[in-house]
């Protein structure tokens, strides 16, 4: 028989938790620390700079899905900013690193927005399209790079932009909500390809203003960039599946705009 309490029901007022856009501050701090820690681990070389891409690039999208767009951007931004100081070997240009990380969290968080947030992806898509225009335009017009070299060398950037603009954006986010770990992994892989690509686009656009790498570098990037991008996506999928399934199982409080 169901228990019927004899005492009167009380109005429960929750203490105000310190939260940013529905994500507890403790979660933001934790994931910022994860981003910083992974910034120390080199993933791949940055052609012509003597620097490395950090492993954290694989988890910037995940942070957005775990925390939502605003808190995700904040956690990534803070994590990347600290990473600039503790891991200078993986920082090509501090501004690009921090901006790319923050934008990655934001873009991941808006992939499957509801209510008014349903449209948040649109200004971001315009922003990324403008960045790509500046990035590719600078290569074609100012540096005289061949169009096919730009197209091949920026495959991960324009493919990410297309996947973000098309309904695939929502599909990937929905797959992550599945109870089937394989679907979650697929959603994370494709989603990380998309969002990490946009992070790359943001960072590269800024870096290219100063670096202006020539045709040869664009061609060298053509086979290398997709390969390392697959690794980023795999990192996001491998870490993400464990984290998401674990979070679901442990029943920790879910941030308001999380996607898992």
């Amino acid at each position: 028989m169901a228990f019927i309490p004899s005492g009167e029901e009380r109005d429960v007022r929750r203490v105000k938790r310190v939260a940013v856009d529905g994500a507890p501050l403790s979660y933001i701090v934790t994931l910022a620390a994860v981003a910083t820690a992974l910034a120390i681990v080199p993933l791949s070389v940055v052609v012509g700079s003597g620097k490395s891409f950090p492993l954290s690039q694989g988890v910037y999208p995940l942070v957005g899905w775990l925390l939502g767009p605003v808190a995700g951007a904040l956690a990534n931004g803070v994590g990347a900013l600290i990473g600039v100081f503790v891991a200078p070997h993986t920082t090509t240009l501090p501004l690009a690193t921090v901006l790319g990380a923050a934008v990655g969290g934001l873009a991941a968080g808006v992939m499957r927005g509801s209510g008014k947030r349903r449209w948040w992806w649109q200004p971001l898509a315009l922003f990324f399209a403008a960045l790509y225009g500046i990035y590719a335009g600078q290569a074609l017009i100012r540096n005289g790079v061949a169009w096919y070299a730009v197209l091949l060398g920026s495959l991960i950037d324009w493919s990410a932009l297309l996947l973000f603009v098309m309904p695939t954006r929502v599909w990937f986010a929905q797959w992550m909500l599945s109870t089937d770990p394989k679907s979650v992994a697929l959603g994370l892989f494709c989603g990380t390809w998309t969002i990490a690509g946009l992070t790359h686009l943001t960072a590269s656009s800024v870096i290219y203003i100063f670096s202006n790498w020539p045709n040869e570098v664009w061609l060298a990037m053509a086979p290398l960039a997709p390969l390392e991008h697959v690794i980023r996506a795999a990192v996001g999928a491998i870490i993400g599946v464990g984290v998401i399934l674990g979070l679901r199982a442990t029943g920790l409080v879910k941030p308001e705009h999380a996607n898992f």
């Binding site: 309490p5 004899s6 005492g7 009167e8 029901e9 009380r10 429960v12 929750r14 938790r17």
Partner: peptide, 12 residues
């Protein structure tokens, strides 16, 4: 309990 966790609380 219940100010941090929330939930339903009866009595005093």
């Amino acid at each position: 309990v219940p100010q941090f966790y929330g939930g339903r609380f009866f009595g005093r």
